[in-house]
Design a protein around this nucleic acid. Sequence first.
DNA 1: GACACCGCTACAACCGATTGCACTAGAGTG
DNA 2: CACTCTAGTGCAATCGGTTGTAGCGGTGTC
Lengths: 318, 318
Amino acid sequence: MAVTIRDVARASGVHVSTVSRTFSAPHLVNAETRTRVLAVADDLGYRPNRAARALTTGRTHNLGLIVADIANPFFSSLIKAAQAQARLRDYHVFVADTDEDPQVEEELIQAFAKQVDGVLLCGPRLANSTIERLGEQVPLVVVNRRVNDLPTVLMDVGRGARQAIEHLVALGHRRIALVTGPSGSWTSKEMQAAATAGEADVVFLGPNPPTELGGRSAVTDVIASGATGVLAYNDLVAIGLMEGLAERDTQVPRDISVIGVDDILPGRFGSPRLTTIAMPTAAAGRMAVDMLLNPVAPGVTTLETSLVVRESTAEARR
Amino acid sequence: MAVTIRDVARASGVHVSTVSRTFSAPHLVNAETRTRVLAVADDLGYRPNRAARALTTGRTHNLGLIVADIANPFFSSLIKAAQAQARLRDYHVFVADTDEDPQVEEELIQAFAKQVDGVLLCGPRLANSTIERLGEQVPLVVVNRRVNDLPTVLMDVGRGARQAIEHLVALGHRRIALVTGPSGSWTSKEMQAAATAGEADVVFLGPNPPTELGGRSAVTDVIASGATGVLAYNDLVAIGLMEGLAERDTQVPRDISVIGVDDILPGRFGSPRLTTIAMPTAAAGRMAVDMLLNPVAPGVTTLETSLVVRESTAEARR
DNA sequence: GACACCGCTACAACCGATTGCACTAGAGTG
DNA sequence: CACTCTAGTGCAATCGGTTGTAGCGGTGTC
């Protein structure tokens, strides 16, 4: 039914190998023959079967990208940048969503393995050892996670967290709560490490799902903790937290200051506008694609984050 | 480097066809042989190459899903539902983002064509004729667009728009603005048709990009139009609009009532909470996958929408 | 005892492409 | 004129699987 290379060969009176070369190595075929073959191919509506090509060449010209939650704007920004970058190199990106389930994550990597030339793992929830094992089946680049012997792109959230806490301390907050993320998250661990390293009195509340619901469910603990400043795992959690606080008649930033991570709603309304740690997601997406396509020695690239002060933080009340 | 079916055959002392059947038709091979082969396969870490398998069977067990903007929560909800449904049927979904570019959209369908068993087109921006042509290369299911001879899932946004306008009229609004979407959008046309059909005095403002920025840029026209009630192409546009209005000291809903479409921020904060037309995105995603996997006669399935009244609409001031 | 039948396995062709190699004819060289 | 060279093309093996068919030994039937 579909038109194959043989149909084109027959219709243009040449051997299949000549047709093949017309597409993959044009300089090897006579100009006249080439134009004829191209005309026939166009006429028949022929398109090389990429899967079949991949079988012999070993290259699919596809990339896989796996994220925990496609609905999180943090990821969608990264995805868009990665797709754009891949397009420049004539690659296509297939995205898949694990729904925060490590089991699904592993399955997806396996499924991708032979159909793509490499996989971008964004904030994977799998154990390091599992990731390393999978790395032998398909080239992997990891974003926001430290995995031995794999090329890695990190966003320096530790530095951001330090800045955020210093910002709170400078505003006079004496007791600070860190609303942590999922237990498998490198970002969350990094934030905790940064918080521990500082001088401030920081209490950890978690783990929590990295969603608005996660934020809402942490409200009681936050209030009970007596903290006047809160650093949330990400903006979604921060938003859920603020909603929950509002329902308890606790005003932000008057009663409690809140800081998020990711900067997913830069221009967005909502009051108060959220103070947050901006993550270089687009740069990370581009960088990760580049590392996948120009294989380099496994190494770590760290991108800077920055604290964006808006309206959800204010001086502590005495 | 990778372990193939031949390695397994050699190591377990049987022919490759037996190994093949062990995986694809287990009942045809002796129980004893089967367990031995499986043991060896497991030992060697063998996984069938899905691309190679697809070459003979013609089935890849993959689905493609193409959206205009992966960052739009409207789509991400649909994507998640589709992925979940596909997983139940042992299928994987590859997602791609066209960035609202019809050219890219066509390219992606071509790229998917031989690597998936079918493609879900969500709110495509391509011309109908182009879509029909592509439909001959790969099974297609279209969401939120009428295309001849293709299975289709529609969300009845026309009915929703009528309800929205009736709601505004009932609140005493005499002049209503419809902030339209991209010119290629079926949804936008449907809304315009619904608005025209009613009795109300509706002015069309557009086309606009289906984003917050699109909403912001429509603010001047909305104010100039003298409308006191606005129906926006989607929630993002509505949000942009409300931000822009706030900056012009126009209060919602006191001065102007605003209604969005999609219900992308059901639990979200932001004041006032947005009145909107809820779209059954998850149901649409599941339905579309089912139609792709159990090929049916091309037909149209229409899902109901519903108006969710919140705080962004109020009685018109006299 | 010839035959059909059974469960199981091996053989080989095939899916749609790529690619190293051999071959051809014509041009260039001495 | 015999030679090497080269550009262009065909041949056939190959990638990693699937699948129709044939062959195997053994049992049951008439």
